[in-house]
Computed example of a mutant assay.
Amino acid sequence: MQNNLWRALLAGAFVLTADAALAETTLTVSSYGGGYQEAQAKAYFAPFAAAHPEITIRQDSPSSNAKLKAMVESGAVDWDIMVTDDSFGLDSDAEWLEPIDYSIVNRDKFIPGTAGTYRIASDIEATVLAYDANALPAAPQGYKDFFDLEKFPGMRAVWKYAPSGIFETALLADGVPADKLYPLDVERALKKLDTIKDHIVWWDTGAQSEQLLDSGEANMGLVWVSRAVSGADQGIKIDWTQWTSQSGYWVVPKGTKNREAAMKALEFFTEPAQQIAFTQYMPYGPSNKTAVAGVSETFKGNLPTDHLDNRVLMDADWWAKNGADVDMRFQEWLLE
Rank of each mutant, 00 (worst) to 15 (best):
K289E: 01
K197P: 12
L266Q: 05
K180R: 13
Q208F: 07
P177A: 06
L213D: 00
K191P: 03
A261W: 04
L190F: 15
H199F: 05
V223F: 02
Q275M: 06
K237R: 11
V186F: 14
Q280F: 00
P283G: 07
K289Y: 02
K180L: 09
S247G: 14
Y284D: 13
P286W: 07
D204M: 11
E217R: 12
D233C: 00
K254H: 10
T195D: 04
W202D: 00
A265K: 05
K197V: 03
F278I: 08
M220Y: 11
E267M: 08
Y249N: 10
S247A: 10
K289D: 04
E267Y: 13
A189C: 06
P272G: 04
V251S: 07
Y284E: 11
Y182H: 04
L193G: 05
F269Y: 15
N288E: 09
K264D: 11
K197G: 10
N219H: 07
S215D: 00
I200Y: 01
D239W: 01
L193S: 06
V251D: 06
W224G: 13
L193C: 11
E267L: 07
V292A: 10
D194N: 13
T290M: 13
G216T: 05
Q242P: 09
I196Y: 01
L212H: 03
L190P: 10
W203K: 09
S245D: 07
S230R: 04
I196H: 09
N219P: 05
G206H: 04
N258F: 05
K257F: 08
K257M: 08
T256W: 15
D233W: 02
L266R: 03
G235I: 10
Q211M: 11
P183V: 00
L266M: 14
G221R: 04
K289P: 02
S287V: 08
Q274P: 12
D185C: 03
D204N: 14
V186I: 15
T195C: 06
T244F: 14
Y281T: 01
Q211S: 09
L190M: 12
F278S: 02
T279W: 05
V176R: 05
W202Q: 01
R259I: 08
S287L: 02
L184Y: 04
G285D: 08
E271I: 09
R259E: 06
Q211K: 15
H199R: 15
L193Q: 12
R227I: 06
N219G: 11
A265P: 08
T195V: 06
W240R: 08
L193F: 11
R188W: 01
A178G: 12
Q275H: 09
A207T: 02
T244P: 10
A228Q: 08
F268N: 07
V292I: 12
W224R: 07
A189N: 08
T241R: 09
Q242I: 00
Y281F: 13
I236A: 10
N219Y: 06
T279E: 03
T241H: 15
Q242H: 13
A273K: 14
G206Q: 05
P286N: 05
G175Q: 11
Q275I: 03
A261I: 12
A262D: 14
A189W: 11
Q242A: 06
L222Q: 04
D233Q: 06
G206A: 01
